[in-house]
Design a protein around this nucleic acid. Structure first.
Lengths: 146, 146
DNA sequence: TTTTTTACTTATCAAATGATAAGTAGGGGG
DNA sequence: CCCCCTACTTATCATTTGATAAGTAAAAAA
């Protein structure tokens, strides 16, 4: 097996993933979200409830910047922040009702676009796609805790 | 098969790809390249020779911004621009010798990091990974021409 | 109880990126 | 030759993002 070619493929693949997701999220402009803010919402959506430190760690953003952007999201009524009852230094962060709606829409949009791409795909192929994603997630694209 | 879950997986997967590639490229700081400039270099590397319009189209950047960033790359001696002999409005863009070296290093870095991740992977698993990438590339993460 | 550490905030600055207007110069009809 | 279109450039501006210093308040350690 040609490893050189394999890594070339990997690079092209990651570039393609970037471009496709870029195309997707650039239209999720409901409520004037910046790209970084969208990423934060995405992370909160799949991981809520979260703390500010967790967002900062996982998205590789500094605490001050994370705090600032989250504040904007709260001002747009997309997130809610609450002081943790057990450790009052911490902030428990969740999507607000508006935020849930927005992300629901965003996910639907993604689903729609991907559905267009898989409409000619058989169920078996779909299952294979899922296995491919699982495999790549576990072997290559897992996120290192630091 | 649960489509809802499938799309959830897709979103998590794309987010993971973003994070991993972010971790990779943030260290390719040789020559103070910005993220956008790195993406341009990556595109030029796999597609050279290219024109400015092609970069602009494929990376979804406006012509003025593409022109500006390419100029910076040329000033850093990473790219070379030549007027097309057949159509003198066009610019033929290639990596310079320095640019080739830089991207070689970048790709090696990527290879190193991914090698760490696959060192315990058998050859059969590797082949399966490659098939997974091929499948996802062809079915989901292909780039639409516009 | 004092000190240190953790979690987060506020303020400020610089750099990167995106958007737009207004150009230049070459190519291709008519 | 004149007009229009294409490919690209230059200049300018607003916004986004990243980085750093200096704070507050609570928890944990000493």
């Amino acid at each position: 097996m040609d490893k050189e070619l394999f890594f070339q493929k990997l690079v092209s693949f990651t570039a393609a993933v970037h471009q496709v997701t870029h195309d997707l999220t650039k239209d999720v402009k409901t409520g004037d979200i910046t790209p970084v803010q969208y990423k934060m919402l995405e992370y909160i959506t799949v991981s809520q409830p979260v703390t500010l430190s967790e967002i900062s760690d996982c998205l590789h953003m500094s605490m001050p910047n994370t705090s600032r952007e989250l504040k904007k999201l709260c001002e747009k009524n997309l997130c809610e922040k609450m002081t943790d009852a057990e450790d009052r230094r911490k902030q428990v962060i969740r999507l607000s009702a508006d935020g849930e709606v927005l992300m629901q829409l965003a996910f639907q949009r993604i689903a729609t676009l991907f559905n267009q791409r898989i409409q000619e795909t058989t169920l078996e192929d779909l299952a294979e796609l899922e296995r491919a994603i699982d495999l790549l997630s576990s072997k290559l694209f897992y996120v290192n805790p630091r």
